[in-house]
């Protein structure tokens, strides 16, 4: 399992690096366009640029989600099932993208992953024995919260961009990511504070 985790981590870093390159491309493209096209930011070319960037980012986000999909059920299922899960998810995304659009493909992935990750968070909260790389109750809750937060965050941008609840859902994802990060990174400090509070 350790090797498997290592591959997932390296895979995540590579996918993040690709997204980083996409951002770098965006920066250079924006400067070049602003230099050559007068009032570029208020022109049709700018809208085309935004839609191109969205198109570039989508497969990268899907790759991140696939890695996340390997990461999430690994708490519950053995490795062979994980590989099948990943292949199934890629297949579902591919078929729906061909039949409809890549946005729908991404949406279906997210809808599948949302209940799974919610279940993982609930099981972790209920102290079920799930497989985690890191030990400690708070760290595990934090890790689950970050994963759920990322799914809610992406889902919000894919499906709820114009909905009235967009900002509310954004705040929920933000709280999940930030509180999750705090639990993961500052576990020791939080435990010490809880201990002090109990002593009082």
């Amino acid at each position: 399992m350790r090797n498997y985790d290592f591959i997932i981590v390296i895979g995540t870093v590579i996918v993040l690096a690709i997204l980083g390159f996409a951002c770098l491309f965006g920066i250079i493209y924006a400067y070049e366009s602003a230099k050559n096209i007068p009032n570029w930011e208020y022109s049709k070319e700018y809208s085309n640029y935004v839609s191109t960037m969205n198109k570039i980012a989508t497969p990268i986000v899907v790759a991140l989600l696939i890695l996340l999909s390997l990461c999430i059920p690994k708490r519950v299922f053995p490795r062979n099932i994980l590989n099948i899960t990943a292949l199934v998810l890629i297949g579902i995304f591919g078929i729906i993208s061909i039949l409809f659009t890549y946005v729908e493909g991404l949406l279906v992935l997210l809808v599948i992953m949302l209940p799974i990750q919610t279940a993982v968070l609930i099981l972790t909260l209920l102290k079920f024995e799930l497989k985690y790389e890191k030990r400690g109750y708070l760290t595990q809750i934090g890790s689950s919260m970050i994963h759920l937060g990322i799914i809610v965050f992406i889902l919000n941008f894919v499906a709820l961009r114009t909905a009235t609840i967009h900002l509310m859902v954004f705040y929920i994802s933000m709280v999940l990511i930030c509180v999750g990060s705090a639990f993961t990174f500052y576990t020791q400090e939080i435990y010490e504070q809880i201990k002090k509070f109990r002593e009082i």
Partner: peptide, 21 residues
């Protein structure tokens, strides 16, 4: 949306996330 400052901020966040991973 996708303005250079936003891109650069995402890039920076991505790199620090990769660093921690």
């Amino acid at each position: 949306w996708w303005a250079p400052k936003i891109n650069a901020s995402i890039l920076m966040w991505i790199l620090y996330t990769s660093f921690l991973h």
